[in-house]
Amino acid sequence: MQGVVKVNSALNMRSGPGSNYGVIGTLRNNDKVEIIKEVDGAYEIRFNGKVGYASKSYITIVN
């Protein structure tokens, strides 16, 4: 499943599905991501070869 990031500035990509996990990357508006699955209000995603988590509130599914 594919998604597009929709933010005003940037969205943190984290090592786990919550803000208490470390930041492993930054997503920008209109970045395209692969959605692997939904976990606790976040999506597990793949972006630029990395797998991490981002809030589903800022990712629009575009299948």
Rank of each mutant, 00 (worst) to 15 (best):
M1Y: 11
M1L: 13
M1H: 10
M1N: 08
M1T: 11
Q2E: 11
Q2T: 13
Q2C: 15
Q2A: 10
G3A: 06
G3Y: 03
V4F: 08
V4H: 05
V5R: 01
V5Y: 01
V5P: 01
V5T: 02
V5M: 03
K6R: 13
K6L: 08
K6P: 01
K6I: 10
V7N: 07
V7W: 05
V7Y: 07
N8R: 14
N8P: 11
N8E: 13
N8V: 13
N8W: 09
S9Y: 12
S9T: 13
S9R: 14
A10G: 11
L11A: 11
L11W: 01
N12I: 15
N12F: 13
N12K: 14
N12G: 10
M13D: 02
M13K: 01
M13V: 15
M13E: 01
M13T: 02
M13W: 06
M13C: 06
M13N: 01
R14Y: 15
R14T: 13
R14L: 11
R14G: 03
S15F: 05
S15H: 04
S15D: 11
S15C: 10
G16V: 04
G16A: 07
G16R: 06
G16H: 08
P17R: 04
P17C: 07
P17E: 03
P17W: 07
G18D: 10
G18M: 04
S19R: 13
S19G: 11
S19C: 15
S19P: 15
S19L: 14
N20T: 09
N20V: 07
N20M: 10
N20G: 12
N20I: 09
Y21H: 10
Y21I: 03
Y21F: 12
Y21V: 04
Y21T: 13
Y21D: 14
Y21G: 09
G22T: 14
G22H: 14
G22N: 14
G22C: 14
V23Q: 04
V23A: 05
V23W: 05
I24Y: 01
I24A: 03
I24D: 01
I24H: 02
I24E: 02
G25H: 09
G25M: 11
G25A: 15
T26V: 14
T26K: 12
T26Q: 12
T26D: 03
T26P: 04
L27C: 03
L27S: 01
L27W: 01
L27I: 05
L27K: 00
R28V: 10
R28Q: 12
R28K: 13
N29G: 07
N29F: 08
N29C: 11
N29W: 07
N29K: 07
N30C: 13
N30Y: 07
N30G: 15
N30W: 08
D31R: 02
D31V: 05
D31K: 02
D31H: 03
K32M: 14
K32F: 12
K32R: 13
K32T: 12
V33N: 00
V33A: 01
V33M: 02
E34N: 06
I35Q: 00
I35R: 00
I36S: 03
I36F: 07
K37V: 05
E38R: 03
E38T: 06
E38M: 07
E38I: 09
E38P: 03
V39R: 05
V39I: 12
D40G: 13
D40S: 10
D40V: 07
D40F: 11
D40A: 11
G41K: 06
G41I: 04
G41F: 08
G41M: 08
G41N: 11
G41E: 10
A42C: 15
A42F: 15
A42S: 14
A42M: 15
A42P: 00
A42Q: 15
A42N: 14
A42I: 11
A42K: 10
Y43W: 08
Y43S: 00
Y43A: 00
Y43N: 00
E44K: 13
E44D: 00
E44R: 08
I45S: 00
I45V: 09
I45H: 00
I45C: 03
I45Y: 01
R46G: 04
R46Q: 07
R46T: 07
F47G: 02
N48R: 11
N48C: 11
N48V: 04
N48D: 11
N48G: 10
K50D: 06
K50N: 08
K50P: 00
V51K: 08
V51S: 08
V51C: 09
V51Q: 09
V51A: 06
G52A: 05
G52F: 04
G52H: 02
G52Q: 02
G52D: 01
Y53W: 14
Y53L: 02
Y53A: 01
Y53Q: 01
Y53I: 02
A54V: 15
A54T: 08
A54H: 01
S55P: 15
S55L: 10
S55F: 08
S55K: 09
S55I: 09
S55H: 10
S55Y: 07
S55E: 15
K56V: 09
K56Y: 03
K56H: 03
K56A: 09
K56C: 07
K56F: 03
K56I: 09
K56Q: 06
S57Q: 15
S57H: 13
S57D: 15
Y58D: 09
Y58H: 12
Y58K: 07
I59F: 06
I59D: 00
I59M: 02
T60R: 13
I61A: 05
I61V: 12
V62I: 13
V62M: 11
N63G: 13
N63K: 12
N63R: 11
